[in-house]
Design a protein around this nucleic acid. Structure first.
Lengths: 338, 338
DNA sequence: CGCTGGCACTCACCCGGGGTGAGTGCCAAG
DNA sequence: CTTGGCACTCACCCCGGGTGAGTGCCAGCG
């Protein structure tokens, strides 16, 4: 177990390194932090910390920098989430309140988060699995061609084109539309399948094939669209990454272009509470020198999606966590109101 | 007027510089191109080209690099668009044919273009202005609340929530829906306004307010959504930009995040044929060291949107132009089929 | 036993200088 | 107009010494 002071030394190292981006030495530490001990003592502590793997030196006779393990200890034990100032909070609220539709909410959120943290922001669209159906619409575009439109309570609209096995009359269509809506409107996606299972039986034999096709398309949509979309922003902040750009930044940009990777990234995070994944804790190789701070957000008490930021492992964790948490809360509020 | 040979020298300089990314000198030129003259002669030509502003030297006693003006002359007079090889063409077609919906088409196109050109690709969603209305749907969500859904021939769906000034019955709604569709279905957006102007007159006095509201919302949607969306990809290719990254890449990333900037960028391009904007020809400051190659694409003979790539002024123009043109053609085909 | 000051050592970083070579401009001759 | 020759420039590379921040170790002190 590390002594109290050694933890204090680690905290000081992390703070200084995050500020200066340069390896920090024993003398500088004692000057900038009131540790109450001499550089020599700090050196001993540093040797111990290095022994335990919390810090490392880039080359002999240079200062120390925190390792992933060091950052991990820092965020777990040493860092308090830093709340935002009240002007900042007001700014957030004002900025988000101007949104006119879901795309706009997500767009504003991503820009806001990128600006607040000065890092890359990632915001997942509210997920459909936990959403409810607001309305299902069926349109006849041709005798044997129907368009299915699904509207969710989060304001998302999905459409599908359906080729029917047999011509389908306007009256049958209206009938199906009415029955469908009375059964599924207001229901959660996951609850829909059993509710519509027996619907074909209510129709004439000649229409049953079409009804089944429509239903299976609907269920498909519910499942497929659980594969969520997301928006990213603030990639320009990657240029503040380090001095050794090309090699560092490239894999990150590549990873950020793969929505699949990002979705997996957010998916790996805990469903409730804030998650911080540091450096090599991220499965994706390109993100081994980045940290991901993410949190769920939602309109009610329940989280419907996640948002977060991606930045260098050398980031201001307390500040970033504070910003992420605050933004998530306000977005939740906005969604609940609309 | 520049002599034939001097133009040839300029072409050689552009080609070599694009290949090596290093200033090119007189001796290297004569060695790599069969110009039939000595380095000394080339030096004279280079001096003349520099005098005219087509090339410049980064510092005294270094080779020359083309200026924006030099590239301009190159693409206007000296470069032939390079057609793709037939395996490439087949690959394009195969890749695009797998698309399942509009988002997918655009997504695939952007990835394809980024990969082919190894640059940043920008693809605009098919625009609504030149599209036609496939169907307008009205849904009653509450007595005085209607949802308007607009479906276009390119497969795009837009929805708007409308608060009615007075309750609106199902029968009136059905009536309006029918009249609306019979008038506007199949029409181009721009032609819609005069066609619906007199519609309120066909309704009872109590419903006229609502009908007007619905109509104005529809017209608003047509106009507003002319503000087009777009998708970008291949930003990781920016890392191949130059050796002096941070300063070059940052403004470009910033510009790429602003959809408005990109839309303006594509908007400035000619409506028909390929447009190449080189370096300072781009209004936006952040893109002063980039070139933009763009072209319109569409399902019929007419262009409904644009796509293009953004890359360093030092790019392979013939190859890039060939790829852009080919992709635009195939996307047009795909859109026409669906 | 832990803290402290002292001390020798390491090593990245910062010059300054000579050498090298690619490239240039100019000129006189073909 | 082209060409070979020539002197000149200057970015780049490499080398070597000086500097300073930082380290590890150790002996002494509370």
């Amino acid at each position: 177990m590390l002594s109290e002071r050694r933890l204090e030394v680690l905290r000081a190292i992390v703070q200084d390194y995050v500020g200066t981006e340069e390896p920090v030495g024993s003398k500088a530490l004692t000057e900038r932090h009131r540790l109450g001990v001499s550089p020599a003592t700090v050196r001993n502590d540093m040797a111990a910390l290095e022994e335990e793997g919390y810090i490392a030196q880039p080359h002999t006779s240079a200062g120390r920098i925190p390792t992933d393990k060091g950052y991990r200890l820092f965020v777990d034990k040493l860092a308090a989430v830093k709340p935002l100032s009240s002007p900042e909070r007001r700014a957030i609220q004002n900025f988000l309140e101007g949104a006119v539709d879901l795309d706009d909410v997500v767009g504003r959120t991503v820009r806001l988060l990128a600006q607040l943290t000065r890092q890359v922001a990632v915001v997942q669209y509210p997920s459909l699995t936990r959403s409810t159906v607001r309305h299902v619409e069926l349109l006849s575009l041709a005798p044997a061609r129907v368009m299915l439109v699904l509207i969710t309570d989060t304001g998302r609209v999905e459409q599908r084109m359906i080729d029917c096995p047999a011509p389908f009359g306007e009256t049958s269509l209206a009938d199906l539309r009415a029955r469908l809506n009375s059964r599924v409107a207001g229901r959660r996606f996951a609850d829909v399948p059993p509710l519509v299972q027996d619907l074909p039986e209510a129709f004439e034999a000649e229409d049953r094939g079409t009804v089944s096709t429509v239903l299976s398309t609907l269920l498909e949509t519910l499942v497929e669209e659980t594969e969520e979309r997301l928006m990213i922003g603030g990639t320009a902040n990657l240029t503040r990454f380090g001095h050794d750009f090309p090699l560092t930044i490239r894999p990150v940009l590549e990873a950020l272009e793969e929505q699949v990777v990002l979705l997996k990234l957010l998916g790996e995070a805990k469903d409730s509470g804030m998650t911080v994944r540091i450096g090599h804790e991220n499965a994706h190789e390109g993100l081994n020198s980045t940290s991901v701070v993410s949190v769920g957000y939602g309109s009610g008490g329940e989280a419907v999606a996640k948002l977060g930021v991606v930045g260098p492992t050398r980031m201001d964790y307390p500040g970033t966590m504070g910003a992420v948490r605050a933004v998530a809360r306000y977005v939740g509020q906005i969604l609940a109101e609309s």
